Amino acid sequence: MTGLSKQRRRSGLALAGPIAMALLLAGCQGDTPLPPPGTQRPPSSVARPVPGAVHFTAQGDIGLGSGAREVLDTVSGLRPELNLALGDFSYEAGREQEFCDMVTGKLGGDFPYEVVTGNHESDGHDGDIANIVNCLPNRLSGMQGEYGTQWYADYPERKPLVRFIMLSPGIKFRDGNTLDYASGSERWQWTAAALDDARSKQIPWTVVGMHTPCLSVGRYSCQAGQDLTNLLIDKKADLVLSGHDHIYQRSHQLGPGQECPLLVPDTFSAGCLASSGGTMAQGAGTVFVTVGTGGVGLYDVDDQDPEAGYFAAWSGKNRDAALGTLDVTATKDRLSAKFVPANGYTFTDSFSIGRK
C-alpha cells in the first residue's frame, strides 16, 4: 500500500469550489446481536427505513478473502439502509467484477453500497475505480459531484437527517498526482461549501468519508492533509470516517479553541480535546473513526504514538484484533455508533453524539 510510514520507537514518546460547481459536476436502533455464521440478506432486498432514523454501516480495506465475506455477512445481519465503502476493494486489477458480485451476492443487487476510491484502485495498479463505479453504481437520489471520487448526498432525500460527503485526499491517481485539498484550493472550497450548505439547510448531521486518515496510532502519517483535517474540525463536521490503516480507532471529540488554534499531526495537545467521554454534544467538535477492518489483514497499533492521546479506543493485529464494521443510527436528536465485530471476534466500541 502506498503512503508514508510513521517513524517511531515503542519506547519513545510517542497528531473546493462552491456548491454550484457540484451541481455542474452531477447532475433509534439499540444494540444488534451478531448474526449466525453465514447469515446474509436475500438478494435484491433493501432494509425498510425506520421512520425518523437513518441506519448505515461503514468500513474500508475489504479484499476478496474469507474475512471480507465474514464482514459482509455481519453487515447483512445488521440490515442497514446503506453502506459507506471507504476504499480499497478487490486489491487486484481485473477482479473488480468479482468483488462487485461478492457484495451484491451478500447484500442484494439494489442495495446502496456507496463507494469512494482507495489508493489501490485510484491509479489502476490494483484495480480501477471506474470499474467499481460501473458495477456498484450510486443508488442515492440527488447525489452531487463525481461518484467514487468526490460527491455528497442527503439522506433521506426528503427531510434529510444526514449529509454524506465523500472525498479523496492523499492518494495518487492515474496522472501520478494527488487531488489538491490544500487550504483555499478548489476541492477545499467545495468541501467547505458542502458543509456550510448542510448547516444552512438545517440537516441535523454531517458525515464525511474518505480513504485516508490524518491522525492514527497505526502505520501511516497524515495523508489526508493537515489543512483538510483542520477544515473539518473548524466546520464542526460531526463524524469523519476513513480506512487505509487496517485497524479500528476512534478519537475523542476534537474541537478548536484558544488552546488549539490548529491541530498539528504527530503531536498531542490536550487543548484540542473538546470532550473525552463516550457521550458527546454536537457542536463541540468532530469525532474521527478509522474502520480499516473490512476484511484484509490487520496492522499493529502503537499506544506510544504521539497522537495516542487523541484516541478513546483502538484495535489492531497486536491488540484486541477484530475485523468488523461501524454500525451507525442517526435520528434528529442523536447519532449513535457501535463497532460490530465479525463472527469469531469480540472487540467492540460505542459512542454517541446528542444535539442540544
Rank of each mutant, 00 (worst) to 15 (best):
I353T: 06
A198I: 01
L262T: 08
Y113H: 08
Y152M: 13
Q253F: 03
L140K: 07
I132S: 01
P265W: 03
Q144W: 12
E70Q: 14
G60C: 01
T279L: 13
D320C: 01
P137S: 06
N134D: 15
C222F: 08
E121R: 02
D101H: 10
P160W: 07
G17M: 08
T57G: 06
D227N: 01
K356P: 14
G87F: 13
I62L: 13
G38L: 06
A308W: 01
R10D: 08
V264L: 13
D180M: 11
P156C: 06
L107S: 07
V208N: 04
D300R: 08
W190A: 15
E307L: 01
S44H: 12
M1D: 11
P160E: 09
L239Y: 15
M102W: 02
G257A: 05
T329M: 09
G354H: 13
F173G: 02
P137N: 07
N177P: 00
E259D: 15
L25P: 00
Q29S: 13
T149S: 09
V340R: 12
T104M: 06
L34Y: 01
V116Y: 00
E146A: 15
E92G: 01
I165N: 07
D234L: 09
R8S: 12
S269A: 13
S216N: 09
L34H: 03
A93N: 05
A20D: 13
A322L: 07
Q29Y: 04
A270D: 11
T206C: 09
D245W: 00
L215G: 06
T331V: 06
